[in-house]
């Protein structure tokens, strides 16, 4: 498993991105989706996922819908309009961060 500390700061952005693609998702579904996309490299722990979801909900970026599925209540999360705007901003920040990291880790040397 990859070093989860490296992903920690990007967890909220990952959640916003997944919800933008998946329309509405529940907690377990998010963990499985991340596992599937990263081929098991990144496992979001329960202790990190739910606080992040609750924080995004409190910030007004996520909306909640509760449905009864398979004899139990399921809490679905979806992006609000503000969440959609915020996702675009945070993704741009993350892309910029990745570009900078690439420059630092793998600089392209050139002779002027």
């Amino acid at each position: 498993m990859a070093n989860s500390k490296l992903y920690k700061g990007s967890l909220n952005t990952i959640i916003l991105k997944l919800l933008d693609e998946g329309e509405k998702m529940y907690g377990y579904e998010i963990t499985q989706k991340v596992k599937e996309i990263t081929k098991g490299e990144l496992k979001i722990t329960e202790g990190a996922l739910y606080p992040a979801l609750h924080k995004l909900e409190a910030e007004g970026l996520l909306d909640v819908e509760v449905k009864k599925v398979d004899n139990r209540l399921r809490k679905y999360y979806k992006l609000t309009d503000q969440g959609v705007r915020e996702k675009t901003n945070r993704l741009a920040e993350l892309e910029e961060f990745i570009r900078n990291m690439e420059q630092l880790v793998n600089p392209k040397w050139s002779i002027n």
């Binding site: 529940y26 377990y28 509760v66 209540l73 809490k75």
Partner: peptide
């Protein structure tokens, strides 16, 4: 609010 989420997560898993 927390119990329903944990119960669903555990059940799915």
């Amino acid at each position: 609010d927390l119990k329903m989420e944990v119960l669903d997560h555990m059940a799915n898993s």
